[in-house]
Nucleic acid binder design. Sequence first.
DNA 1: CGGCATTTGTTCGTATGTATC
DNA 2: AGATACATACGAACAAATGCC
Lengths: 241, 241
Amino acid sequence: MEVDMEKRYKEIYQSIKNDIFQRKYKVGEKLPSENEFCKLYNASRGTIHKVLNLLAEEGLVNSMHGKGVFVLESSSIDFSFGKLVSFKEASESSGKQFVTRVEKFETITIDKTLQEKTGLPEGKEVYKIYRIRSLDGDSLIFDINYFLKDLITDLPPEIAEGSIYQYIEEQLNLKIGFAKRIIMTEPATASDKRYLDMSGFNFVIVVKNLVFLTDGMQFEYTESHHIPDRFVFTDFARRWL
Amino acid sequence: MEVDMEKRYKEIYQSIKNDIFQRKYKVGEKLPSENEFCKLYNASRGTIHKVLNLLAEEGLVNSMHGKGVFVLESSSIDFSFGKLVSFKEASESSGKQFVTRVEKFETITIDKTLQEKTGLPEGKEVYKIYRIRSLDGDSLIFDINYFLKDLITDLPPEIAEGSIYQYIEEQLNLKIGFAKRIIMTEPATASDKRYLDMSGFNFVIVVKNLVFLTDGMQFEYTESHHIPDRFVFTDFARRWL
DNA sequence: CGGCATTTGTTCGTATGTATC
DNA sequence: AGATACATACGAACAAATGCC
């Protein structure tokens, strides 16, 4: 019923985040104190504290005991890819235009070998999709997706050209919980050489993603093959013992 | 005064984390409810909730609204390198023996070019250190460190063979706040070819680390050059809008 | 189907501790 | 010493999802 019944702390989080991006709070500046935010948003200090912690984990601000909370630099520019975002979201937020071409869209069954490789349950049917991502005419990324048909039912092939995640969340109303990611290098396969502009390279950067719903069920395994030249991964980490 | 006055939530966090690694709470099992943990640790629900959230962010557990909190698999095996841990910590937790060889230890001044490359302030003096990390006799990683002399005072060269971070935290009593990390590939330099067993590869995986103290001052820039073959980076991400 | 207990998620108010100025 | 600001902790209440009867 209440569709836009948003949690208070999420509203405040978005609001402050927005103000940082809009340079209302400038880099290096001190944010209003927690107590001032309480009045501003008519919320308790606990809620404000929680919000500021979220912003700190994300690398947007740095809070200093006894002094205040300060805006960190470069928060807007380097799109934080260290989070779990889909390719489309990442490219949009960085303002660049990616083009997606679907090269394969078929249904296969997970056998023993694929089970070990993907983590998906043996015997289950999956969509296997090949997609090539291009930027300014250069084919940069070759994606191999496996989606469990049990969970991602009736995936229309034309969706694959857009955001499959948007379809999963908005149409199927499934909630993505967490993902494990592994980054490594592998020798370029015949497919890599066919689909990507390898220009001399004989290996690719492979990003393997195992994605799970909130109930802990894995619904996806994806390998993104990147041309070494153009691969960049950025991350923000906060130490904590 | 009170040296070992530990925060309650950190104690509980370590305790539960330990119990998970010790398999007291097994993979797939439901943890005691928050209210049960309250009695177990004589703490409030807020504190317990906070601890469980930390464990969830780390990828050790998955909490499900209305059902409980469940232990995720592979929590112990894959040493989570997605966090900000030093090389020594990571290798120790994975049970393998790394050997560090110091190839260079000198003091230089940050010029304009280095300032742009490292983010460290122009005109300041830094320790520049070359270190080669070997595992089972294979030279796998070539580290180039820059430490601000203003902050990391009197770094003894022999420390470089061990953990510089331990020295920074325990001897200098400085607190590390956060780090920005960038992973990319670059052509192998002459130094790379000299120090690493490149066996045919003509490029390296470069992990660039910019590390800051809690007060937001950057004190380090480090480039880790990895042999493509042996590079693996693992990560855990939780979706959150 | 409804009702009820259990469990996690969110929020508030309050108090105390600790760091900074 | 006092004021300000963030960090931790407790207790209470209600919301929301789940599961059982």
